[in-house]
Design a protein around this nucleic acid. Structure first.
Lengths: 255, 255
DNA sequence: TGCCGTGATCTGTGATCACACTTAGGCTGG
DNA sequence: CCAGCCTAAGTGTGATCACAGATCACGGCA
């Protein structure tokens, strides 16, 4: 049970960059200096929990406690509260009538519903990506694709790395569509299926290679390269449907 | 400046129903008694602000203050904090590097992006609705359609009622698709375009009748009635594109 | 032996205080 | 008369306390 400390508790260094913000606003023609993302403790806790969720390190049904989360991450209860509130709003966590917080247990019906929505939304993103994809976007995508293929073909596949490569590949495609709000929507969906998807995937490693994931990815990349929107959509839909079908066969989903 | 009091501060009455929850779980065959939604002050503040936003009563660029919101709604600062945090997470509000909270100013580019995403997502929802629509769903939809048509044709159109009828019509269609997570996504989108959309609509009333909204709605309802998925999608896409084009002509959007 | 009341403990929620920071307004010094 | 500082009010963020309700185990009654 390692203890990540989010503090960097020297607030003077943490908030330092913000002091330049007024300058940047007074002289908007000053290059560089992007809007300067706010990094509060609450946001950091949110990101930490978020990563745990989509990595499947928090199992469905697992319970959380504000005080435990706070202590584990080295903060007080307040940032944990904010983080959990946001995740509950995203339906990535749920708080029962008992006031207990846990990661939701997805039913089979809900899983199928999410899969249909994913195919529609992510399929659209892939199609748009095929239209808007630029050479450097494609290069990044190919990089992640190669990493994934390399990992699943290895003698001792590193599942964590493989899943991360898969995720990076998908989101690189979605980012190439040039619709940030769409990417945010997809992130919300992944946040909800992450636990069940990655958890089951972890339980049966070799399925990763057997499933047609690599083949679907290859078709996807090929379609993107030639600007074939419908081809990209179909390839991505097949990829999603394939992994969903596998999850269903494990039968671990609640009725 | 009326003062809505969210308290009902008699906690004993507010939380009373929860006491039946354990019984309902122990005897699951006990009819009625759905899971019993939690209603915290934070959630109520969230809903209040949310309604203000999608009704366009909070103009883009308008600033909010936690303490002001709290006082106005008759609570302390904590529930206001949670509500604002959630809305910021939804990108329905934003907090500047100065730590000032305001409703975001949408740029023209962002507006077009959101419109494209809306056409894709809501169009899909309409198509699914055409497949899954049941007679009683259709009846509800027709009711809202009639209300909207009646309102825009009146001599003295009540804009607020018209916009609400329009919103109810749209969401009745999306609900008919039977994909709750999709409805949640669309709500997030409406939360972000609500301010600019409804604000501009309010500034020029008669456009409501001139715009083809009623005609698009008619085509939409007709398509739903016969299960024509692509027809429904097209009608809804035209509706969205129409109102978006009108908004752009007002030229009020930031470059 | 089986069951129900009852207490300690832990939960999320709300209120309040403390703090660093921003911002606007009034004052002083030129 | 204007530019400059500089105080005072107001901001979100984080910590801490208070509290009602839930959970669970122990102990006593039937």
């Amino acid at each position: 049970m390692e203890r990540r400390d989010l503090h960097g508790r020297d607030a003077s260094t943490r908030d330092r960059p913000a002091r330049d913000a007024p300058d940047a606003r007074d002289r908007p023609d000053l290059a560089g200096v992007p809007p300067l993302a706010r990094i509060t403790l609450g946001t950091q806790v949110y990101d930490a929990l978020r990563d745990l969720l989509i990595a499947g390190e928090l199992a469905p049904g697992e319970r959380l406690s504000l005080r435990t989360v706070a202590e584990r991450l080295g903060t007080s209860m307040m940032p944990a509260r904010e983080a959990v509130s946001r995740l509950v709003a995203d339906e990535a966590l749920e708080v029962l009538p008992n006031r207990a917080v846990r990661v939701p247990v997805i039913t089979l019906g809900k899983f199928r519903e999410l899969t249909r929505v994913r195919i529609a939304v992510e399929g659209f993103a892939a199609a748009e990506a095929a239209r808007a994809c630029r050479p450097d976007d494609l290069a990044v995508i190919r990089g992640h694709d190669a990493a994934f293929r390399h990992e699943v073909r290895a003698d001792a596949p590193d599942l964590e790395r493989a899943m991360r490569a898969n995720r990076d590949l998908h989101f690189a495609v979605y980012a190439a569509a040039g619709l940030p709000s769409l990417v945010a929507i997809v992130e919300g969906l992944w946040l909800r299926i992450g636990p069940v998807l990655n958890l089951d995937m972890r339980s049966s490693p070799r399925r990763l290679a057997e499933g047609g994931a690599a083949a679907h990815h290859a078709r996807l990349v090929a379609a993107l390269a030639v600007g074939d929107a419908e081809g990209a959509r179909a390839a991505l839909a097949a990829d999603i449907a394939g992994s969903a079908a596998f999850i269903e066969t494990t039968g671990r989903l609640a009725p």
